[in-house]
Each structure stands twice: as structure tokens, then as C-alpha cells.
Design a binder for these strands. Structure first.
Length: 278
DNA sequence: CCTGAAACCTGTCTGC
DNA sequence: TGCAGACAGGTTTCAG
């Protein structure tokens, strides 16, 4: 699931508690099980377990698609769910551990456990002193009000890249993934192959507005749940183009097209999103 | 700087 | 039914 709205939803649920489980905020980690060592980007499993045991989660947040847990001693845990990662609460009494695809299990004093579950094993977790080592290259947060339309337009002007790959580039903007990029471009009325520098000032403003609108809508719906994993959100019911190839555009009726751009399936309405010249 | 391809992985679905 | 192939919400690395 994990693009900005889904990661934001998880962060809120871990902070406040949810139907899926209790709040993580304020809990003290007793021990950690490392079931698939490559899930840990840093440090090594032994050091990770030692550093974490006895520490309390004091803050929970998000940066781009990363989850961020602040610890008592000032260190930070960063989690990236990549394609198939998720966090599963397991209530006491403990079921026979581990569950299928659990890669990391955090154990708490009252018997609750939080599993980093990840069928495809692409997800990664870091424990770092200085988070800029991991987050330093990320672009701005799309929902940060200090990101101005002028700045955004200026940055588009500097790139000759096509819009689709550019919006997926986390150094340009942090948090958009394949689903939300397709939805955003539809709502902005911009073709995914448009070179960034060809956008007018008005189009750039429309694009930034669409980015913010679609992300806010996604968050309001607790993100999207697709394929076989259910994560609690229902934004998939409101997709305008994503995985709707061949179906009529909700605005004009033209069949939605699918094209592979930068190795990613891309969906758009050829009428509402006119292709660039050439 | 930019683009495309491959790699990292497992699971599901489609079509023959 | 069985099996090959396409496809999947992400990122990194390497070749050209």
C-alpha cells in the first residue's frame, strides 16, 4: 500500500491506537526477533536488538514514505515498507510465532507484539543516530505549506524529465508512488509523458493543487487497500484511472489507456490528458 | 544529466 | 488441471 497517505495513516494509528491495535507511542520495547536479517539495513541484528531493548518509543511520525520512531536515547528507527510491507499487531496471549512473512517482531511488556510483515522482502528498517544519513536526499513534503507554487514551478522548469518518472523521484518530491502519481496527473489534466519544463505557470499550479488534493483525499480515506492485503482504507473505490485501462473515463467516457513508462504501468485518459507534441 | 534494464522477492491472476 | 508469463503500491545500481 505504501505511498504517502497509507504511511501517514499507519503513523496516526500507531500514535493514537486504532481498530487494528493499541497505540505504539509510549511503549517500551522488551526484545526484538529478527526473522529475516536482510530486513535490517543497519545496524547488524545483534546490535539492533541490544540497542532497542528497554527503550521507549517517544515520538511517531512520517517523512516521505518512511515511518519514523523516536527513541528515549535520541536514536531513531526508520521503516520503509516498499512494495508489500505492513505492520501487524498481535495481541496476547501470543500466537505461535512467527506468522507467515513476519520479518521482524517487536515484543512489549504486556504481551502485545508488533510484527513487520513483508511477503516480498523489499522492506527495510534502520536504527540510526543521525536520520539525515537515510533521509537527507529526500525532496520536500508535498503537504508542507512552505512549499510554494513559485518554487514548484521553478523546479519543474529545471527538469527535462517526463512528468511521470519525475513525480516518482523521491528527490524531487517525497511521498508520491505509482497509484497517486497517475491519479494526480489525471486530476491535473496533464499527460504523464509531458516534459516537466514545458509546463506553464498555470499548469504547474494546477499540478501542485492536484497533488495536495489527491493526497488529502487519500489520507481522509485512510489510504487504499488493493490486491490480497487489506489495510483498512477504501480510497481504491475512488480511483479515476489507476488499473482502469479500457474502462470509460469518469469525466468524458473515453477508454482509459495504459502505457509502461519508466518500467511502471501508467494509466491516463487520452482525451482529458492531451499528449505532448511529437 | 537522462533513459532503460536488471536486480531484489513472493504471490496472484490470466490465458493457453 | 498445469504451467508459463505478466503483473504488482519501491528503490538501487549499472550500462549506454
Amino acid at each position: 500500500m505504501p505511498e504517502l497517505p497509507e504511511v501517514e495513516t499507519i503513523a496516526r494509528w500507531l500514535r493514537e491506537g486504532s481498530p487494528q491495535g493499541p497505540a505504539l507511542l509510549g511503549r517500551t520495547c522488551q526484545r526484538v526477533e529478527v526473522l529475516w536479517p536482510r530486513t535490517l539495513a543497519a545496524p547488524d541484528p545483534i546490535t539492533f536488538a541490544q540497542r532497542l531493548s528497554g527503550q521507549t518509543i517517544t515520538t511517531i511520525g512520517r517523512r516521505g514514505k518512511f515511518l519514523r520512531w523516536g527513541l528515549t536515547d535520541g536514536a531513531v528507527i526508520l521503516l520503509h515498507l516498499r512494495m508489500s510491507g505492513d505492520l501487524h499487531w498481535q495481541p496476547p496471549p501470543a500466537p505461535p510465532s512467527p506468522q507467515p512473512h513476519d520479518r521482524l517482531v517487536f515484543h512489549f511488556a504486556d504481551g502485545w507484539r508488533l510484527a513487520f510483515n513483508d511477503p516480498r522482502k523489499f522492506g527495510r528498517v534502520w536504527l540510526v543516530e543521525d536520520e539525515t544519513d537515510v533521509l537527507g536526499a529526500l525532496g520536500p513534503e508535498p503537504l508542507d505549506p512552505t512549499l510554494s507554487a513559485e518554487d514548484f514551478y521553478a523546479r519543474l522548469q529545471r527538469s527535462r524529465t517526463r512528468l511521470k518518472p519525475l513525480l516518482l523521484d523521491q528527490r524531487f518530491l517525497a511521498g508520491l508512488g505509482n497509484i497517486y502519481t497517475d491519479e494526480v496527473l489525471f486530476h491535473a489534466g496533464l499527460h504523464p509523458l509531458r516534459p516537466a519544463h514545458t509546463l506553464t505557470r498555470a499548469e504547474a499550479e494546477r499540478l501542485l493543487s492536484a497533488i495536495r488534493q489527491v493526497l488529502q483525499d487519500g489520507i481522509a480515506h485512510h489510504g487504499a487497500s488493493i490486491d490480497w492485503v487489506y489495510r483498512g482504507g477504501d480510497f481504491q473505490n475512488y480511483f479515476a484511472v489507476y488499473r482502469r485501462a479500457g474502462q470509460p473515463c469518469r469525466r468524458c467516457g473515453t477508454p482509459i489507456q495504459r502505457l509502461v513508462i519508466g518500467q511502471r504501468g501508467s494509466h491516463f485518459c487520452p482525451h482529458c490528458q492531451p499528449p505532448p507534441e511529437g
